[in-house]
Amino acid sequence: MQDKLIDIKNEAVAQILAAKDARELEDIRVEYLGKSAGKLTLLIKKLPGLPPEEKAIVGQFANEVKQTIEETLQAQKKAIQKEKEANIAETEKIDVTLPAVFPPEGHLHPITKTLKEVYEVFKFMGYQMITGPEIETDEYNFTRVNMPKDAPSRDAQASFYLDTRNSKIYPGEYLLRTQTSNMQSRALERIRPPFRVFSPGKCFRVDDVDASHGFEFWQFEGILIDKNITVTNLLGTLDFILKSLLPGTEVRFKSGHFGFTEPSIEAMIRCTICGGRGCPYCKNLGWSEILGSGMTHPNVYKAAGIDPRGWTGFAFGMGLSRLALLKNQIDDLRVLTNSDLRILKQF
């Protein structure tokens, strides 16, 4: 019996040490230690039949054999693992220059990305974001911002008029807003000063479509009403906003003319195409107009029922589409309404 146990032990240990992988080791374990048919298990099952004095000695020896086999199995398992790990550089090698598996990747539109930047700058300056209707009355779009009917300043903003059939509305009364300045009329009417708001949105003008014109485009408008607001406040605000949105740019101002402001001021930036050396885009001036602004006209306050002597403030408007073009070096406004993924994937 003991001889048999020694044979089994030697046989098992030899096999274990020759084993190359975990599967082989498991087979060996089952061969000797398996619950039903393991060679050692079967021998141990015979122990109860031995005489008592022999049973104790052989039993102890059998346990030692079992323990040796188990320990050798463990040791060999570790050794195999260690050897395997030492070689993974070769055995598990992959070509890391093969193409990646990309997660599905979507893209934000350049207008959204630009608006996000605009939003952050305004938020920093304490402005709240508001939005309003695109189908607008002539009154809110023009009259209340001091652009009465027959004002020549309306010529630059040819409007789409809504079909009024089957309604009680007069033709010409409703239009698609030509400027976000309709929100000046609405903010002054509904928001109690002092306030700082800005309003981005889509605007519509009857215009031929080309690289720099479209009949639908995006603007944003900033409005601040408070006490003791000055032109220097306006210039400082514009300077900060433009330099935040277009880092590295230079800003200059010139006198302008807008119905809703008096005085009216336009801001110019260093031409982004030529950097100011002069090019066809900036008509060799080195500067291009970017923004219209001014101190809110007394007539605008009056139209909203606010005492122009009690409050001062300013408003300014800028092309969000134009800014998106500048920031992404897009040379054609039509790119912004083109849904070709070959374009969208670039942003």
């Binding site: 599905p104 990747e105 979507g106 539109h109 695109e134 519509f204 009949f215 639908e216 969208l344």
Partner: peptide
């Protein structure tokens, strides 16, 4: 965007 959707801006008219 994380779901792989790309944003478009189209005409209202």
């Amino acid at each position: 965007k994380g779901d792989g959707y790309s944003e478009i801006y189209t005409y209202s008219l």
